[in-house]
Structures are given as structure tokens and as C-alpha cells.
Design a protein around this nucleic acid. Structure first.
Lengths: 204, 204
DNA sequence: ACAGGTCTAGAACGAACGCTCTACTTAATG
DNA sequence: CATTAAGTAGAGCGTTCGTTCTAGACCTGT
């Protein structure tokens, strides 16, 4: 780790401010819809600073921003899932996943339905290209799946079941988030949480 | 219906060509990433023609294109689900949904992983705005949910269950499609299909 | 023949895009 | 104090964006 890796300290460096602002803007407006100049302005930086820290230009900024967003989301996922022990005392992994979906729903509503999944928008826009952005998004999804998979395995599921279920959990949360944003309602995420809990319940 | 509503006839009108081409381009590159001039060029039309048929400009073209894509997808969904009768002779609605997921996976692979859900990309990009595009995307999702809901209700599910399951099915397919595109693999859609079939099976 | 829509054709506009460039200020090191 | 690197600052490059505009081609009814 370097001396400053986009931490949310009280006095973030210029580079960190650029990464954090870019992450938020890309999350809301997508990769194509977010301009370098807008990033610079909202991060209280200048164009010169942006190109100083990211000689690779817009794509390099986006890669750093997406990696940051991905880790942020992974953290949220880990915290949300760790509450569920291996036993059934707290409802098991199904209840934990349902709780995660609920948290996502609340956060989404509080943001005015605009702060959705940080990588979906960027990933879809750059599908045709062979950009580095693709790789970061793919890694993010794999990483999130792995977190869920380990949680399910810890709850006693067979490795194959845990793997396939984890993939589906991430896909469902992803899709439910989009549906919730478009319909401006918590219900898709709530429904997805309940159904996922029911589905997980059929394995334990 | 008018005399020509973007039908795939042998001699499509200029307007229809614009709609079809715009639908495909927006599906692949998103709303912001697709230019009016690119649409005109690939549809063998001129800028003048585009603005003649769509005085509302780019947004009007996108609205027509998304409505067309939405109906196209709805058709596919209806055909995929109608095979499943009310009885369990053909596996029931769960198997039908799994078959739909399989069809999506094949079509996605054959397109080189670029022809995903026609409305997701556009919906995410225009979330912050109060554009008409939003409304079309929301209606599309609701329409697809209704198709699945009716299919589940016809299979004997309670109205409440059918509704909530339908929402989850659409969300999951949506998310699994994105995941499949990003990871360039059929597996997310296959897994989602199997898990959805299992989930539906717990109701019948 | 002629008038009046419908449709085609593309030049041109102002704005915004990503990016490059030079000039300036600050900080650390000999 | 001199030197060098790091970081800040923004004007300006060429390009592309969505849109507007004028002009011509085509068809139909009288």
C-alpha cells in the first residue's frame, strides 16, 4: 500500500479527491457521460493536476475510480454478511443476504435513486471495447461473488452449491438495484431479498 | 396501428430503419455513447430525414427505439414462457423460465457478448434526469414483469406470490445478463436459470 | 402544367469533448 | 542560495456533439 490510497481521511490529497469524485460521478452518469473537466471542477482540482496524477487520461482515472468503488462495495458486503454466523441463531446466511438487500434499498432511496451499482453503468458502456475498464469491472463482480460464496460455504453449503448460489445472489442484487432505480421503489430490492432468503433456505 | 410501425418487412421505410438501427446502437453503446449522425449513417438516412421524422431530436429517436426494443423483448419472453402449460407435464413455469435464461445466454454469446438488455444501459445513464426515456424504460420493466406474473398465476400461484416472484425473476435475468456480458460467459445466466427454477419449484 | 406537401441532402453553428502545452508556485535537497 | 522535482493553473488544440438551416427531389391532386 502507498502512503495514501484514496482513504477518506479529513485532509485527502488532491489525487484522492479526484478518485472519490470520479467514482461518484461515474456511478451516477456513467463513463461516457462524465467529463474530465467536470471531475476536475468538482474535486477542486485543475485539469493539469488530473493529467499529472493520471497520465493515462480519462480511462486511467476511471480505472482507479472503479477499483475504489468496487472495494467500497465489497466492504459493505462483508460487513452485511458477517453478522450471520454458521448456526441458525440469527437466521443464517439467507437472512443476512436479505438484510444486505434492505441496506441497499435504504441507501438507494436516500440518494434519490441515483447512487446505484458503481460498476454496472461503466461496464455496459465499454462492452464493445477492449478497455481496461472491462477488466476492473469483471474483477469487481468476481470479488463480490467470492465474498458471498465464502459466506455460504461457511454456513455449511456444498462447494458447488455455494458457488452457483453466490453467482445468482450477486446477479439478482445487481438486477434488483437497477429495477429499483428505474421504478424508484424499494420493492424490487425487498422482494429480491425475501426470495433470495427463501432460495438459500432450501439448501441449509 | 399505423401503416408501418417499425416492422421488419423486406422494404422497411426510412423511419423504420432509423428506429431499428437506433435500437441496436443504444443497446450496444448506450444513449450518450450513440450519436445522431452515427444513427443516420448506419440507417442509410441523412440527418435531415432523422429530424424530419423525429422533430424531438435525439431523445425522441431514443424513446421510439427503446419502445421498439421493449416490445421485441416482450415477444421473446411470451414465446419462451408459453411453452409451459399449467400442468407439470413439461416441467411447469420454473422450467420455462430456465429455458428463457438459456435462450438469452445463447443469443448473448452469438452476438459476441454485446447485445444485452436493450433498456438497462439507457436507463442507467438517464437516471438523474427527468427524461421521457426513464418512463419508457420503467414501462418496459413493468410490462415484462406482468408477462411473467400472468404465467405464474396461470400455473396456480397465489396472486401475491406470483407478483413478487415475477419482479424477482425479471431482476435476476437482468442482473445475470449484465454479469454474463461482463464475464463473457454463459454461466451466470445458466446458474440464474437453474436457481430461479428451483425457487419457483418451492411454490407449486 | 402547376402548386403543395413529403422527404432527402448536407453545409454550418455554437458548445462541449479529451488532451496537450507552457508558465507558475511550492518543497525538499545539495 | 541554487537546483530540481512535484504539483497547480488554465489557455488553446482539433474533433465531435446535437441541432438548425436552406435547397432541392419526389410524388399527388387538380
Amino acid at each position: 500500500m502507498t502512503h495514501s490510497s484514496a482513504a477518506k481521511s479529513a485532509n485527502p490529497s488532491t489525487r484522492d479527491r479526484i478518485v472519490v469524485v470520479a467514482a461518484r460521478l461515474i456511478q451516477r452518469q456513467g463513463y461516457v457521460g462524465t467529463g474530465i473537466k467536470q471531475i476536475a471542477k468538482e474535486a477542486d482540482a485543475t485539469l493539469g493536476s488530473v493529467y499529472h496524477f493520471f497520465p493515462g487520461g480519462k480511462e486511467a482515472v476511471a480505472v482507479a475510480a472503479l477499483a475504489y468503488s468496487a472495494e467500497e462495495f465489497a466492504e459493505m458486503l462483508r460487513e452485511g454478511l458477517e453478522g450471520a454466523g454458521a448456526g441458525a441463531g440469527d437466521g443464517g446466511p439467507g437472512a443476512a443476504i436479505e438484510r444486505c438487500a434492505g441496506e441497499l434499498a435504504v441507501a438507494l432511496r436516500e440518494s434519490g435513486w441515483i447512487d446505484g451499482c458503481p460498476v454496472t453503468a461503466a461496464a455496459l458502456e465499454t462492452l464493445g471495447t477492449d478497455s481496461e475498464i472491462q477488466r476492473v469491472c469483471a474483477e469487481a463482480l468476481r470479488g463480490w461473488e467470492r465474498i458471498v460464496e465464502e459466506r455460504l460455504a461457511a454456513a455449511g453449503l456444498a462447494p458447488g452449491d455455494a458457488r452457483e448460489l453466490a453467482t445468482t445472489v450477486i446477479s439478482t442484487l445487481e438486477g434488483a438495484e437497477v429495477t429499483a432505480q428505474v421504478s424508484r421503489s424499494e420493492e424490487p430490492l425487498r422482494a429480491a431479498g425475501r426470495q433470495l432468503a427463501r432460495l438459500v433456505g432450501t439448501y441449509v
